[in-house]
Amino acid sequence: RTRTSFTAEQLYRLEMEFQRCQYVVGRERTELARQLNLSETQVKVWFQNRRTKQKK
C-alpha cells in the first residue's frame, strides 16, 4: 500500500472537521471524502491516526 500525501487544502479541511467532531462516520465521512477527492478509507484512517496523535 502506498502512503497518501495529503494536500495543504485537504489537511486544512480534515483538521477543521476534527476540531468540530473527532469521529466522522456514515454520510458525513462519505461526503467529506467526496469533497476532498479521497476514499472513505483514507478519511477514516486519517481520523484514527489524528485521534492517536492527540492522545500522546
Rank of each mutant, 00 (worst) to 15 (best):
A8C: 08
C21T: 12
N37E: 12
K56W: 14
G26C: 03
A8D: 14
M16N: 05
E15M: 00
T41I: 04
T4Q: 10
T4F: 05
S5T: 14
E31R: 02
T7F: 01
V24G: 04
R13I: 14
L14F: 01
E17R: 04
E31N: 13
R20N: 15
N49D: 12
R27Y: 10
R1K: 15
E9S: 05
R51S: 08
R20T: 06
E31V: 06
T52P: 03
N49T: 14
K55P: 13
T4E: 15
T52D: 14
K56S: 14
Q22S: 11
K53E: 15
F47G: 00
F18W: 08
T30I: 08
F47W: 02
S39T: 08
Q42E: 15
T4W: 10
Q35I: 07
Q42G: 03
L38A: 07
T7L: 02
T2H: 05
Q54Y: 06
R3I: 15
Q42S: 05
T7K: 03
Q10P: 02
Q54G: 13
S39M: 03
V25H: 12
V25K: 08
R50Y: 07
V45E: 15
V24F: 05
R1S: 12
Y12E: 15
W46A: 00
T41Y: 08
R34S: 11
F47C: 02
V24R: 07
V25L: 10
Q42N: 07
L11T: 09
L11Q: 15
V25C: 14
R13C: 09
R3T: 15
M16E: 14
T30H: 07
N49S: 07
S39W: 00
N49V: 10
Q10N: 07
R20Q: 08
E40C: 08
Y23W: 04
R50P: 00
T41A: 13
F47P: 01
N49A: 09
Q22W: 05
R20H: 12
Q42K: 04
Q35C: 11
K55T: 15
V25P: 06
E28I: 02
E28W: 04
V43S: 03
R51L: 10
C21H: 08
K53M: 10
V43E: 02
Q54E: 14
V25I: 08
C21K: 09
R51M: 06
Q10I: 07
Q35V: 07
E40N: 01
Y23D: 09
A33S: 10
T52F: 06
S5M: 14
Y23A: 14
K56D: 15
Q48R: 09
T2E: 12
